[in-house]
């Protein structure tokens, strides 16, 4: 959005006053979620309303949900180049672009819920130079994250590690190594194919957070949810074009900074609620069975996925980044945040 240039100050003999800045902005907001998804309908809309309120309506937004303006893997570059003013997407959709961020999607953290994961990522971004470097092409407004994903199957139910062996599970991006380590067979396919693939029996299951049971209608084709909170979560970013950001006066920049800071926690809570809500919807409307692993069983799974973290550290070290330090730091923050926010929604 090209903002009209501020009106030229009229020359006058009066004592010099700051020229009144009455510019307005309509910002193009790109996101991959459909408009009806809670992330847009409640999350982004709530955030946008709050910004509009605190800027007295000088900043407004035009939403382009469901990849209408930029595809999920185009949003980061598109925002950096100004094709949209701001946007939200996952770093995981463009593997390789954000090597340090990958650390947050590794298995094995305490990672109680989406709130913990969101606060962890945000805290890490504010304190780690390495992370900030990955996003220098854009103005980062905020980060947040999904809750832990669960193994959800059509059939058979997964009650122990052995049940998973050889099952074809839709898995994407950073979670592929974990599923390989658990001896499932990861199948990557677009989300638009997942419903039919589950329905036809081509896929035995999918690894995803339970809000997809409702959001992507998966409850219709899923019968069992095995709680596996330790497997992964996915980070999200909300980023803005630098030229757009620099066109704002200080008070508007402050509104963005303040509201976004508050919304890291709000989004985290929202996702936690909907992860639970999606699960309850599945249980009530489609009689999905929830399977909880015993402590010993969980320990077996965790042992099995240990090499995944080591392999990641090795790969990252090879790329000249301190993989070990990064994982250690994330573990620290995760532990701190788990203590503070881990009980939310329980």
């Amino acid at each position: 959005a090209k903002a009209p240039a501020p009106a030229a100050p009229t020359p006058t003999d009066q004592p010099k006053e700051e020229p009144k800045d009455d510019r307005t902005w309509n910002l193009q907001f790109a996101t991959f979620w459909p408009a009806t998804d809670f992330q847009v309908a409640e999350g982004h809309m709530g955030w946008a309303k709050e910004i509009e309120k605190r800027t007295n309506g000088r900043v407004t937004f035009t939403f382009h949900p469901a990849n209408a303006l930029l595809g999920a893997n185009e949003i980061f570059t598109g925002v950096a180049d100004g094709a949209a003013d701001l946007g939200t997407t996952c770093p995981a959709y463009t593997p390789g672009l954000f090597p340090v961020t990958e650390a947050f999607e590794l298995p094995g953290y305490k990672n109680d819920n989406a709130l913990v994961a969101s606060m962890t990522m945000w805290e890490a971004y504010k304190t780690m130079d390495l992370l900030q470097k990955e996003y220098k092409d854009v103005k980062v407004l905020m980060f947040w994250a999904t809750g832990p994903g669960d193994v959800m199957t059509n059939k058979p139910p997964v009650r122990k590690l052995e049940d998973l062996k050889g099952l074809q599970i839709r898995t994407v991006g950073g979670t592929v190594p974990s599923m390989k380590a658990l001896e499932a067979t990861p199948v990557s396919m677009p989300m638009s194919d997942a419903y039919l693939a589950l329905d036809s029996g081509l896929l035995a299951g999918i690894l995803a957070p339970t809000d997809t049971l409702k959001g992507f209608k998966l409850a219709e084709v899923i019968n069992y949810v095995t709680k596996t909170p330790f497997l992964y979560n996915i980070v999200f970013m909300k980023v803005m074009n630098w030229d757009t950001w620099n066109s704002f006066p200080a008070d508007i920049q402050k509104a963005f900074t303040d509201v976004s800071e508050e919304y890291v926690e709000k989004y985290g809570k929202l996702r936690t609620d909907h992860t639970e809500g999606g699960l309850q919807y599945g249980i009530k409307e489609h009689k999905v069975e929830v399977i909880t692993l015993s402590a010993e069983e969980q320990a077996r799974w965790l042992k099995q996925i240990e090499p995944v973290v080591d392999a990641w550290i090795e790969k990252t070290n090879k790329a000249g980044l301190p993989g070990n330090d990064v994982v250690k730091k994330v573990k620290e923050i995760d532990a701190k945040m788990s203590q503070k926010y881990g009980s939310y929604g329980k």
Binding site: A35, P65, A66, K217
Partner: peptide
């Protein structure tokens, strides 16, 4: 997907 209606 964009309305939440059942695909089936």
């Amino acid at each position: 997907i964009s309305t939440g209606e059942s695909i089936a």
